[in-house]
Nucleic acid binder design. Structure first.
Length: 934
RNA sequence: GGGCAGUUAGCUCAGCGGUAGAGCACCGCCUUGACAUGGCGGUGGUCAGAGGUUCGAUCCCUCUACUGCCCACCA
């Protein structure tokens, strides 16, 4: 989905960037086995055939899941390739690979032997639909409208002080059948004297004590609470504290069992609730019912309401030693002392707060798909843990009684995912690990260098599930942190900021953005899984309105660039397709700039390709050594390598424009490098965008035109070379974000520069210091730009048709201005469509003219026949007003003694300079206005 | 109940102590030989509200109001 595409764009950009910088890079790709989700899918398939997994039996069922995994796994990698992921696919891993499974067994056994994994009968979150335990993290609390039932439990010895009994409040009346006590607060004056008495449990033939416990909130309900140890997490703790017996009254599929009174046996929990309430009312125990909003624990995977259930499960000890087990404490320390850094850093709080309040981790799941727990039981119920049965026997402290049978349960998927940072590198094997094709996929002896890795890129939603657990296991087993940086990417939402979800029909498929999709297909796809007709209709209506023509293909590059441009430190990004279209235009701009450059070099691209090839640009993966994966568009021939002449190659930038663009390139690259280290993809995309479009294309390319066709052969040759060099550099700088188009263009540009690499990915990432900064040239070009902009402004505002060549006069100014005007004469003529600029001679009568002011120079366009005098006066007055406002602001500041005394000298100085500049301009403009009789 | 974000141009977002920015949208003019997925020019903002710190606050602090997310056992 969009989140994956976004995430992979970030990862791929980082990988390509570092590879080009010559770093030893590994992008460890792979997938986990998604235990519950996957098993559920296959079970659903079976259900459609009218079968259950029990019909197949464990072995056949697991076989079938493997089969499904082969199919779906390839879909993921295919999509990653489309987005351009330059991963090392030969090293792709799966959590149920043999090697990774060996790591799982070793970790389990070591932790067990260290006393950090234990088996116990505990109250756990039980999913009665999937029939498995789940961890705390896999439970969501959702608010529901419910009721609060007030129930009277009569005193066993008859009324006390006229009171018939104790009134309790509950949201789950059916669980009263398992009550073991009532509890009040020890300091509650209303009830203190009743502690120790007994009440009769309605509907049951039992009496239960009234106890006192601090846990009770005096303010809530009646201040008296029923204690149902086996079916409520709070009550469980209270019951344990007071040694109150726990009665289990539900089966694993949440029906009343034989411990419940006969009347309710076999009833579903909600049916039983109704029956219990009805009976209570009948028998006069129900005091009242109030509407009540409450939190219901819901299974993330099945939406079933979770039932706390007392069962035998396996746990990882994360809390011994005061909540800081040998596993937890190092994981906290690593982040606190900066060995691991969250980006953006505010996620640090989330991480540490969770670890500070963590509970033991329930790792057993009553499923078949996953790593089977390496524990065996003998006929006496003794537990034997080992990497296999023989190992388990060998480590037995008591001889097994009879045959051993392996634990039926599997491990939480995240248990194996938690080992990813080192299990994928070959741990624990001393030998190279091979895949089923006999290829070496990992070798711990040599691959250790990738631990810790530089960065983990992931979503905040799995900081607890995955990130924290990788930190815990990796620190424990390797004494190293798994990664240095954790870049938490933003969540992708739709343009209105709503979560993308299939049930809202507002998801976008990245591939549909890349390839485009027709309206009917989009409608069909978005409404396919919507079952409610009204919702369907609404979604269809919205889509028809939002995408009347479907979605036009924007290509992988533009999509990637959009993701980069949106990747600020913000925690959500609202995906606006308009923005993607803007970046598609950028890709096109780049393409056309390249066309221009190549057109002016010895081997141009063929004409007639003014738009970037769309569908043809689709490529396969860009695996190392695989080349660009780009198809050439129709009609295009292989460019014949014709390197520049020696003179061209050897020449240094000669013109100001060249030295200026090279200076700008330096600044841009410096900025980009900085942004890569801080993961500010938005800024680096922006910097490159501005450089390519606003500087290289808008100014340098335009300035090159007169140079290329001018009389100065040396300048022409040098310009040609600089066009190529800067383009080639910009391509490399952009390549991590825009891999396909840059490769495509580069293949044509490289021969022009005599470059030998087979792929742009083999070239080094450009560094700022390879490009000289020339302040002087920059100042010259800024002057030129100001002059040209001034003229353009007049032309535009005075409605002088662009095609019309106009006369140009220069007045005032100093020696520098004269020198510059002389130097840029040809460029001004060419780009401003004017006659050669002429200086107004001393004493020469000045014609009525429109004027632009650049420093001390007045750039004059005579009005005769061109310009409306009134319009020019109005234009001048507007400009004067604007400058006066600026002057007023400056004077306000400088007139404030506090400012002058307290502000840093540089700031005051800057303000004075500004004021002087504004005043100069104001003077010139006023003079000009006077001349026009305004 | 705790915690974390966000509120800046019509829309999607940067900026974050010293002259308010980008893309898209909008308004002019222009099929000029790289590009109309374009060029040139332009319109548009008391930076959510109120206090405070400061010579100076969109930026720092406090509070308020909305919006969103995460965590938590109030039966």
């Amino acid at each position: 989905h969009m989140g994956h595409a976004f995430q992979q764009t970030i990862m791929d950009a980082l990988i390509r960037y570092h590879r080009m910088r010559g770093d030893n890079t590994l992008w460890q790709v792979g997938t986990d086995h998604a235990g519950i989700a996957t098993q559920k899918i296959v079970e659903n398939q079976l259900a459609a055939e009218g079968k259950s997994r029990h019909d197949l039996g464990r072995e056949a069922f697991v076989e079938r899941v493997w089969h499904w995994k082969e199919e779906s796994g390839s879909t993921i990698t295919r999509q990653m390739r489309r987005i351009g992921a330059a991963a090392d696919w030969s090293r792709e891993r799966f959590t149920m690979d043999e090697g990774l499974s060996a790591a799982v067994r070793k970790v389990f056994v070591e932790w067990y032997r260290a006393g950090l994994i234990y088996r116990g009968n505990r109250l756990v979150n039980w999913d009665p639909l999937l029939m498995t335990a789940v961890s705390d993290l896999e439970v969501n609390n959702v608010e529901r409208d419910g009721s609060m039932w007030y129930i009277c439990y009569p005193f066993s010895d008859g009324p006390v002080d006229g009171l018939r009994g104790m009134t309790i409040a509950t949201t789950r009346p059916e669980t009263m059948l398992a009550d073991g006590a009532l509890a009040v607060h020890p300091e509650d004056g209303r009830y203190r004297h009743l502690v120790g008495r007994y009440v009769d449990l309605p509907l049951c033939d039992r009496r239960i004590p009234i106890i006192a416990d601090e846990f009770v909130d005096r303010e809530f309900g009646s201040g008296c609470v029923k204690i149902t140890g086996a079916h409520d997490f709070n009550d469980y703790e209270v019951a344990k504290r007071h040694a109150i017996g726990m009665i289990i009254i539900m089966t694993l599929d949440a029906r009343m069992n034989d411990s419940a009174p006969a009347a309710y046996r076999g009833m579903d929990r909600y049916v039983a609730r109704k029956a219990v309430v009805a009976d209570l009312e009948h028998q006069g125990f129900l005091i009242k019912v109030e509407p009540h909003k409450y939190q219901v624990p819901v299974s993330q995977r099945s939406d079933a309401v979770i039932e706390p259930m007392l069962t035998d499960q396996w746990f990882v000890d994360l809390t011994s030693d005061n909540g800081r087990s040998a596993i937890t404490q190092p994981a906290l320390d690593a982040v606190r002392n900066g060995d691991i850094r969250f980006v953006p850093e505010n996620w640090t709080t989330t991480y540490t707060q969770w670890l500070d309040n963590i509970q033991d981790w329930c790792i057993s799941r009553q499923l078949w798909w996953g790593h089977r727990i390496p524990a065996w039981y003998d006929e006496a119920g003794n537990i034997f843990v080992g990497e296999d049965e023989a190992d388990a026997r060998a480590h037995a402290s008591v001889p097994p009684v009879g045959a051993l049978r392996q634990d039926e349960d599997v491990l939480d998927t995240w248990f194996s995912s938690a080992l990813w940072p080192f299990s994928t590198l070959g741990w624990p094997s001393d030998q190279p690990v091979e895949n089923e094709r006999g290829e070496i996929v990992a070798n711990w002896q040599t691959d250790k260098v990738f631990l810790p890795s530089s960065v983990l890129v992931t979503g905040f939603d799995i900081i607890f599930f995955w990130v924290a657990r990788m930190v815990m296991t990796t620190l424990y087993f390797t004494r190293q942190v798994p990664f240095r940086d954790v870049y938490i990417n933003a969540i992708v939402r739709d343009a209105e900021g709503r979560k993308m979800s299939k049930s809202k029909g507002n998801t976008l498929d990245p591939l549909d953005l890349i390839d485009g999709i027709t309206l009917p297909a989009l409608v069909e796809k978005s409404t396919r899984s919507l079952l409610i007709p009204q919702v369907r209709e609404k979604v269809e209506k919205r889509i028809r309105k939002e995408y009347p023509d479907g979605i036009a293909a924007i290509g992988t590059d533009a999509l990637r660039f959009t993701f980069a441009a949106l990747a600020s430190y913000s925690r959500t990004i609202n995906f606006d397709i308009k923005r993607a279209e803007g970046y598609k235009a950028f890709c096109n701009k780049l393409w056309n700039a390249a066309r221009f450059v190549l057109m002016n070099s010895s081997s141009p691209l063929p004409p007639g390709t003014a738009a970037i090839p769309g569908q043809e640009l689709r490529g396969g993966a860009q695996a190392p050594g695989e080349g660009s994966g780009l198809a050439r568009h129709p009609g295009e021939t292989e460019p014949s390598p014709q390197p520049l002449s020696r003179r061209e190659r050897g020449s240094l930038p000669t013109t100001e424009a060249e030295r200026w663009i090279v200076s700008r390139l330096h600044a841009t690259l410096a900025e980009v490098e900085q942004h890569f280290t801080t993961y500010r993809f938005d800024h680096l995309a922006q910097a490159l965008y501005e450089f390519v479009w606003n500087e290289y294309c808008d100014w340098f390319l335009e300035l090159s035109k007169p140079a290329l066709s001018g009389d100065d052969a040396e300048a022409a040759a040098s310009t040609r070379r600089t066009l190529l060099v800067v383009l080639e550099t910009a391509l490399r700088a952009l390549h991590p974000v825009i891999p396909f188009i840059t490769e495509e263009i580069w293949q044509s540009v490289a021969p022009q520069l005599g470059l030998e690499a087979a792929s742009i990915l083999e070239r080094a990432y450009p560094r700022a210091d390879e490009f000289a900064v020339d302040q002087t040239a920059s100042a010259e070009i800024e002057w030129f730009k100001a002059v040209l902009t001034g003229i353009r402004k007049i032309r535009s505002e005075m409605n002088i048709v662009p095609g019309k060549t106009i006369p140009l006069l220069l007045a005032d100014g100093d020696a520098d201005d004269r020198r510059r005007a002389e130097k840029f004469s040809a460029q001004i003529e060419f780009l401003a469509r004017c006659e050669a600029p002429r200086w107004l001679a001393a004493g020469e009568a000045e014609p009525a003219a429109a004027a632009a002011v650049v420093g001390n120079v007045r750039v004059l366009i005579p009005l005769a026949g061109l310009i409306d005098l009134d319009a020019e006066r109005a234009r001048l007055n507007k400009e004067i007003a604007r400058i006066q406002a600026e002057i007023k602001k400056c004077q306000g500041k400088l007139g404030n003694a506090n400012f002058v005394d307290h502000a840093p000298a540089v700031v005051v100085e800057q303000e004075r300079n500004r004021l002087a500049d504004w005043n100069t301009q104001l003077g010139v403009l006023r003079g000009q206005a006077e001349k026009l009789g305004a």
